[in-house]
Write a protein that binds this DNA or RNA. Structure first.
Lengths: 217, 217, 217, 217
DNA sequence: GATGAATGAGGCTTCATTCAT
DNA sequence: TATGAATGAAGCCTCATTCAT
């Protein structure tokens, strides 16, 4: 009659502990004792359920990315088929309702970017996460171009620009939130994206389809 | 016969050592021994010229910001008075010719963002740096609005959007450069900024000053 | 309905697990988890059947010594009454057919010698084991002297010499087997013992006195 | 005006600390704190002068072996050219005056044998040490055979036997000194070696070189 | 100013042992 | 009996900082 296994719960607890501590102390600053305390567990347990601290970080990355991608895909599905609606959903999911609404996750994500500079393992996963987002954007952009909604242009460059803006908002929001006027991020990026994709503002389709510009070389 | 003081040079050496090491190991990963070695100095000297490691970081931040702001202001001056030209110069200085061209400084800047999450001192300086950039953008934007070149809108929101895009490009470039098509960053941001500011492509300044949108609430 | 006790079997399993692990990792290097795994049991069981890891070691020592002494006494019985035959049997039992044929037991025995340096408990049992062997040798030697087969000499010194050679072969065989020509150990020790005891070589009183011998058979 | 370097002395101190601690606690039982305390140094210094604990062990092995080989070679030189005298000197150096006279070194050597079972690095050096001794023995034996002093026989087997006896005496002396009658080791091994090599006892070289050997007094 | 040895606190990790089931 | 999770005390090692010269 063994104790019922609760490894999954414990691992989740520990990962959550790292999330909490890391958001204020970074990864290196999060000691295993800190993590254990934040998880309300004994220090030894961390290494009973994970081989090393780095493995907790990996699990945390996976959790953040998985959760975020799930939320994103759900939002995209809800947005329907219209490319612009999907693009807006993508932006909102990042800047209005999603990731940026969770300050801890935001801070951790910024820390992960810095960690990616040092650790190849972290970098691999981090880049994979960015790439997954980029890919979704590219698909949206291609669809928009195919539908004649977006001007024809290299979709990867445009996607990188939109994604970079999101990432940049994350950094600024995490470190200097006061610099961003409240609720300005998503609308601003939408306007910027429309400029990039030469989408005429919906309500006003008067002006002629002005020539393309800014063809991100 | 006292030897001529060389403190300034030594301090510069040490700061440079931190820059080198930090770009691949981050701040915590940069040990004083590492810094000394990169500076080609003995370890003891680091604490002779600086009271603490954190002070070296502070000096490094100051150096990066000072150098960058100097380059920026110089570029802005060279751009003349036209708001759009100044905006383009601002963008180019960040994404085409300036900071992003120095991978080490780029990596350090990203690390500093993460460090700012942990240390109030770093954060203060980091935010001040962002704010200085933001302020220059705001001035440009206001001038553009005043000149009727940019649509009227809350300049801080637009400035934050442009600055965030730049910061985001920095992060992505530092961690996943392959995701950004070569030379696409500055043109893309210019196009985005034009969209945000409703600037008609230069060759055509026919259209009436259409109503503003995207008033980042 | 109580299940039939299987403590003895479990203890044997655990002791065997320690034997396996210890032969390659030593006693301190053998974690209870290692032992349990090698015994194909759960970690908790080790401390259910033994109060402490040290107790497993004690049981292992006892097992090794008991088994070895049983084999030895059996070999001595089979050797008959002749002192020289009994001496040869003693040597063969150690160097030709017995302990040294089991690499794991050999390694463990060497580790036990080192362990005896640290732990009084281990030392007591280890010394008792050596003493038991020594005692059997002394009995053989005394019998040989009484029978006029061995020259009169202090039997404890001779016994210690023979026993030391055996122990030394164990160490060298366990750590540097290549240094010992194959099958040379028992013949060499027999020749040495004869030298010590001034036994004229029995078999050869025929042909030209010498002829080569000791050629590591 | 830097502090004069004393690294060599410090390293020697640390190695000596390990020698002291290891003789009673073994290698794993010798904590870095123990070593530092025994060396009367602060704990951090151990890792300032050595990269890892294992490196201290390596240095200790080298010291023991170097010192021992130096003493041995010196004794052999003093023994002159006579093979038997050299053989006796070899034995005395190990069992009468040399290594076995230093209980700490003896215990450490026994521990090293056990350590060699676990660590390939230790084993390599340990075997090299044994081999160096063996080689000297082989040279002596070959010279004796060439001079007609020793019966012709495979020298490596005889050398291994003699070396094993020495190693065995080390183990028994370190763990159960009481089992070895005082001052019996060297004489006993000399007698055994004579038996093995069929050396006629020196005093009587009257009789024809009778085949039989071993009538050691 | 400069050197590099010295210090000691603290981090990650391991592990014998205990415990809930 | 059996299981495997849980505990907490060390252990090895790193490192910012100090110090003797």
């Amino acid at each position: 009659m063994p104790r019922p296994p609760n490894t999954d719960q414990r691992r989740a607890q520990i990962v959550d502990g790292l999330l909490k501590v890391m958001s204020t102390k970074g990864y290196e600053g999060a000691t295993t004792q800190d993590i254990a305390k934040a998880a309300k567990l004994s220090p030894g347990l961390v290494h009973y359920h994970f081989q090393a601290k780095a493995e907790v970080l990996e699990a945390l990355m996976n959790r953040l990315l998985d959760e975020h991608l799930a939320a994103l895909d759900s939002a995209l599905t809800a947005a329907g088929a219209d490319p612009l609606a999907r693009l807006d959903a993508f932006i909102d999911c990042h800047l209005a309702t999603g990731a940026s609404a969770n300050p801890r996750a935001l801070a951790v994500w910024v820390s992960l970017g810095a960690e990616a500079l040092k650790s190849a393992d972290v970098r691999t996963r981090y880049v994979a996460g960015l790439d997954a987002l980029l890919e979704r954007l590219v698909v949206i952009l291609r669809a928009g171009v195919a539908a004649g909604r977006f001007v024809d242009q290299p979709p990867r460059a445009a996607a990188a620009a939109i994604l970079s803006t999101i990432e940049g908002y994350f950094v600024v929001a995490a470190t200097a939130r006061a610099l961003i006027p409240r609720h300005s991020a998503a609308p601003a990026l939408k306007a910027m994206a429309r400029g990039l994709l030469e989408v005429a503002p919906e309500p006003r389709r008067h002006a002629p389809p002005r020539a393309r510009r800014g063809s991100a070389s």
